[in-house]
Design a binder for these strands. Structure first.
Lengths: 342, 342
DNA sequence: TTGTATGCGTTATCAG
DNA sequence: CTGATAACGCATACAA
């Protein structure tokens, strides 16, 4: 019944198509890869044969022959954090537009440097032509340098889109906007609840928090520990509620801010009347906290997009025109901050 | 200096290793794939050569020869929704444990059925041996049936882990637990804010909501529209606040519940004293809403894990022992529900 | 515009 | 336990 070789249950290949269409395999290859130098009539015959047999290019064979895989690798931690997911959206989009495929290697939270090297290896072995390091730690071991030297890769955290600049969201700018917003409102000092120590972002934001305070002649108060989770924010909130002179807090994530504000409320301290809170991320729920969160938005999606596009440009040796402009973190002022009470 | 062929910048291959180790390529292959029938001393020599040359197996070549890719495909929508991300965590874990790689194809929200077929094709072409359909819609077009017939795939929504049962979280059970909880508290009826109509889950939950009410002789009130976003929850909340007789609401996601509760508060209706709210998901922030959300937890991570394991079992023709037991949605009672006021 | 020949790096088969 | 040899399916010269 079917036109396929009845006795053969293997998938149809180029040869089968060529035979059925009455052309050479070379022509089939040309048609499949969309090259122009094929007579329309011939192409039509080939396509008809393809359709009839249900032929599809065998990626492994094509890769082996061409040396290209069109695979982008992504290494991430905490797959279910908002930042990771949002980054992924941008990467997926850009990759799909340029007919790349993306494969993800998830690394356990708090994993050692070795785990990242292993993930890199997995991705390389799998044929990834470029790798996006969506990771929260510095990777400057010799082993990692060896790998990033041979496979193009991108650490996605700095702000600038200039082709030679590192690609990262500027954590210092985030912290500076947050802290200066509070100081400009008239607060005498700003307390800080950082994220998990494992994350590079955590350290960078804390440094800048300290620096901005110091610039204004303020001695930074002790850090109140946090680890990104709302629970840790809650604990930090209880601590801060017990500090009468505290009037302003810079928390390193929106999720922690939810916990923090709840603890403050339970302790009878009002936000923002008694204590102002500014956080980071601008997750979908940020505007629906009580009060709505003043927060510094991180442009994750654009960043993911930019990282993928830059990698693709590098792989193809071309300029990519649709890369986003420089993207910046942006302070979104809502209702969790106010001037201190006279 | 280096032992690599100095004039050659191509990656080392099996032949190079075999030559350096003084064995055949076959033996190299055996060592790399961890087969046991190699003399330890020989294996050691091979490994040394591998190390020295920095050799790594070329995946495309291995695939071509073996016919296996060890690639799992995943099709998802709304990559940044909590459900999608959480599912991914489970899939990634299970895949990694069994040395599979996962590549994701993201489909635009509200995409047509064709988009899923295309995504399936991309993944197949890429060599995916099995595909997890982490999608919110029914896919029973002829085109899709053709594909799922030739490539093992899994729709991840039903509850049971029995090998022949569909693999899905039981949406009817979710809705039933939510609605019965409210009715059992003594509420006369339950209003409903569904998710986006595009999602199968939305329709299933609404059906069950209607059914449970009907079972108890209650005529379901009109549905208040929602689309998963907190904004839509807020709008629904304003609507409901204007309905004096409303005392209980079943909202189809935690995120919408945040918006809904805020709108109720703004309208002067207290939760749970005036209106009880139960939602679905149990996201990390659910316990930090004001009041803390009573919600039905969906076991996304276990579901992802189960889907991947089942697929792998099928691909290898083996029983997988570490598959999770049946997993069930679970009602988490917090503070957003209470008996109606006398 | 189209066809022929060759090689990509590995695994599988079979022999030793 | 080890080795020789033949596929695997496609793309890329190069030739016609």
């Amino acid at each position: 019944m079917s036109p396929r070789h009845p006795s053969d249950d293997r998938a149809p290949n180029q040869v089968d198509v060529a035979r059925l269409a009455g052309v050479s395999t070379q022509t089939v290859s040309r048609v499949m890869s969309g090259q122009q130098n094929v007579r329309p009539e011939t192409a039509r015959r080939v396509l008809a044969a393809v359709e009839e047999l249900g032929y599809r290019v065998h990626a492994a064979a094509a890769s082996l022959a061409s040396g290209r895989t069109r695979i982008l690798g992504v290494i991430v931690v905490s797959t279910d954090r908002y930042s990771t997911a949002a980054l992924g959206v941008g990467i997926q989009q850009a990759a799909a537009e340029h007919r790349y495929t993306v494969t993800t290697a998830a690394v356990a939270d708090h994993a050692s440097a070795d785990a990242f090297v292993e993930a890199f290896d997995r991705l390389e072995r799998q044929g990834a032509e470029g790798i996006i390091l969506g990771v929260p730690v510095e990777l400057d071991s010799p082993a990692m340098r060896l790998r990033t030297a041979r496979t193009p890769s991108t650490r996605n955290e700095r702000l600038s889109m200039h082709p030679d600049a590192p690609l990262i969201i500027d954590q210092h700018a985030i912290a500076r906007q947050a802290v200066e917003h509070l100081l400009d409102l008239g607060h005498k000092t700003v307390w800080h609840v950082p994220g998990d120590e494992y994350w590079l972002e955590t350290r960078q934001r804390r440094e800048t928090w300290e620096q901005v305070l110091t610039e204004r002649g303020i001695t930074p108060p002790p850090v109140i520990p946090g680890d990104w989770t709302p629970e840790s924010g809650y604990r930090a909130g209880r601590t801060i509620a017990a500090i009468p002179e505290a009037t302003a807090v810079f928390v390193s994530s929106d999720e922690m801010a939810f916990g923090l504000i709840r603890a403050l409320h339970e302790a009878g301290r009002r936000v923002p009347e008694d204590i102002s809170v500014v956080s980071v991320d601008d997750i979908a729920l940020a505007g629906f906290a009580s009060p709505a969160l003043t927060t510094v938005r991180q442009p994750f999606e654009q960043m993911g997009r930019a990282a993928a596009l830059r990698l693709i440009a590098q792989l193809e040796g071309v300029e990519i025109s649709d890369a986003p402009e420089d993207v910046h973190p942006e302070l979104i002022v809502r209702s969790s901050t106010a001037a201190p009470r006279g």
